[in-house]
């Protein structure tokens, strides 16, 4: 039972992070390798707003989320916008470079000491009993809930709202979409904003659970196999991929060797790439476009 809870929490973490990869990739065919840094930036944002709005934790959280959205849009406007038309490698490299820049900047601003945003907010990470013999931490529960809500909202947004449909259109056929009068740059900026928002949220929650320091970025990379296994352009795929990776990892830790937990996701990824490179739900023809 505890294992199931652990899988749920870990899968939620991966899913919340990887939906950022999917959103950006789906719309603009660019893989953002700065996602870990943007995630950490979200977390530091929360830490900053928490100390700014001390005593009003909800305001702080809302402000941090808004900040994340804004940062995402800014990243597009200031950098990625210029990379349109460049090769995939160049675009991916631009995100890597952005990541390096952000990481350095964050160390400059916040130092290397461990921070605890949750305490800054004045909340504690209570432990809640689930069923007879399992427990989940407050933040863990929040993570599961946040992931559920995020994915629900994103599905609804993409299926039902006008902007969501435009976003899908831009992802499927940018040329046609542009000819139909859809402002691609707005769509791309929106995608970056939403991706950074969800990533930032993930960062905030992870930091609340575990404290915040500059090694957090690596976690962004760990969610990467999840997004790929599911199919880089499918939200449902990201969800499923996260579940598969998280399950494999948790079971590996419990039943085999914890030392393998770092490598196993990549083994799954390799196996997936060999058998079904486009992932569980990804579209097949995408392969040739990258």
């Amino acid at each position: 039972m505890q294992l199931a809870v652990n899988i749920a929490v870990l899968a939620s973490i991966y899913a919340l992070i990887s939906c950022g990869y999917v959103l950006i990739y789906r719309v603009s065919r660019v893989l953002s390798l700065a996602h870990g840094e943007l995630m950490m930036l979200g977390a530091y944002g929360l830490y900053a707003t928490a100390s700014l709005f001390s005593g009003q934790p909800l305001v702080a959280v809302a402000a941090a989320l808004a900040l994340s959205l804004l940062v995402g849009v800014l990243v597009y406007v200031a950098l990625m916008w210029r990379m349109t038309g460049e090769s995939v490698l160049a675009a991916v490299l631009a995100t890597i470079a952005l990541g390096i820049l952000l990481r350095g900047a964050m160390i400059l601003m916040f130092g290397t000491q461990t921070r605890h945003p949750l305490e800054e907010l004045g909340w504690t990470n209570a432990s809640i009993e689930v069923g007879d013999d399992a427990r989940i931490s407050g933040v863990g529960l929040a993570l599961v809930l946040a992931t559920t809500v995020c994915y629900g909202l994103l599905f609804a947004f993409l299926r039902m709202t006008r902007w969501g449909i435009r976003m899908r259109a831009a992802g499927q056929n940018p040329l046609l979409a542009a000819q139909r009068g859809i402002g691609l740059h707005v769509i791309y900026a929106l995608a970056w904003g939403l991706a950074t928002l969800t990533g930032g949220l993930a960062g905030m929650l992870i930091a609340s659970d575990a404290g915040l320091e500059s090694t957090m970025v690596v976690i962004g990379l760990k969610a990467f196999p999840a997004a790929l296994v599911g199919g880089l352009d499918s939200l449902a795929g990201a969800l499923l991929g996260s579940l598969v990776i998280a399950t494999a990892e948790v079971l590996m830790v419990y039943y085999v060797d914890p030392l393998l937990s770092d490598v196993v996701p990549f083994f799954i990824l390799l196996a997936m790439l060999v058998v079904r490179p486009w992932g569980f739900f990804g579209s097949r023809e995408e392969l040739d476009r990258v």
């Binding site: 952005l98 820049l101 350095g104």
Partner: peptide, 23 residues
Amino acid sequence: SVVFAVNYSAFGLAMVLFLVFEP
């Protein structure tokens, strides 16, 4: 105390500048 961070950021910045202005 921030040499590393400055270095790191500068490296990232240099890469970004190259990618954007001198592909």
